[in-house]
Design a protein around this nucleic acid. Structure first.
Lengths: 143, 143
DNA sequence: AGATAAAAAGATCTGGACATCTATTTTATT
DNA sequence: AATAAAATAGATGTCCAGATCTTTTTATCT
């Protein structure tokens, strides 16, 4: 459903959103989110290319969120690393279908649309403010 | 979102549902659904193991649906070949979370639940009876 | 009843994408 | 100039999709 890479990207973004004052290094984020450090660096690179996060090189550098959490839909994070693909034309390449989707693929695409809508309306901010008990990720976050 | 294997399984099942009088061979289904024949045989095997389809060996054998289309949710087809995995415990293995999910993973799991519900309530029968123009798959089906 | 052909079932093998690790280069700060 | 950090490049491992081949089962036809 949600790729490993998307999961990692979401963890990183939520982690950054929780203490957004100063930049965080890849190593820090990796430790807090328990993502393999060197893979995380690639994920963060993709997030930076899509301007979800902002990177600062050199001493005291690191990554920061490029948006306020409440202005950052989960969809943007997901699409940066592993874009949601819609079914736009018949995968069987049947000429008689043309640009129409058959019933099966229409139904499948409807569910993709639904998921996309869900991730579009739910932001990193809503994750943080969700009124459940546990704190997102990071038992040692903020210490 | 939906794996290639699930897509193939759904195509095969929809195809079988469209002419359910006699068994269809793997080669036939492969031709009609444009799925690679030898991979399809594996997919059909999995469907048979999970009793979504029934197989008959030997001359004039082949595969048939094990259920009436309206009694066969798409979820059963998907779960037979590529089960939907729910997030049951914190992927970070944080002790403080225990069996509780953090907000991020709760949100992600909610969307998985939603998709599952969608595929549970929508059956192969609803695909066939969907009031849209194009016929599911198979331009040459039924000839 | 035995031979034959048709079909599923099963065993390997390969290429590509994703995930992970290692090493080097570039850039900014002190 | 020294250092810390991202950026880049490359190597390795694993899993899924797909291809090829062999074996087993079963209906049908002499």
């Amino acid at each position: 459903m949600i790729s490993q890479t998307s999961e990692y990207a979401l963890r990183a973004v939520v982690c950054l959103a929780q203490s957004s004052k100063k930049p965080h290094t890849t190593a820090e984020i990796a430790r807090l989110t328990k993502v393999p450090e060197h893979y995380l660096s690639k994920v963060l690179l993709m997030l930076a290319k899509h301007e979800v996060v902002y990177s600062k090189k050199g001493l005291h550098g690191g990554y920061m969120l490029a948006y306020l959490p409440e202005n950052l839909p989960l969809l943007n994070v997901i699409n940066a690393v592993d874009p949601i693909k819609h079914i736009k034309s018949c995968p069987l390449k049947l000429k008689t279908h043309g640009t129409n989707l058959c019933r099966l693929h229409k139904r499948l695409n409807d569910s993709i649309d639904l998921i996309e809508e869900l991730f579009k309306t739910s932001t990193v901010g809503t994750i943080l403010s969700d009124p459940t008990k546990s704190i997102p990720l990071c038992e040692s976050n903020g210490k």
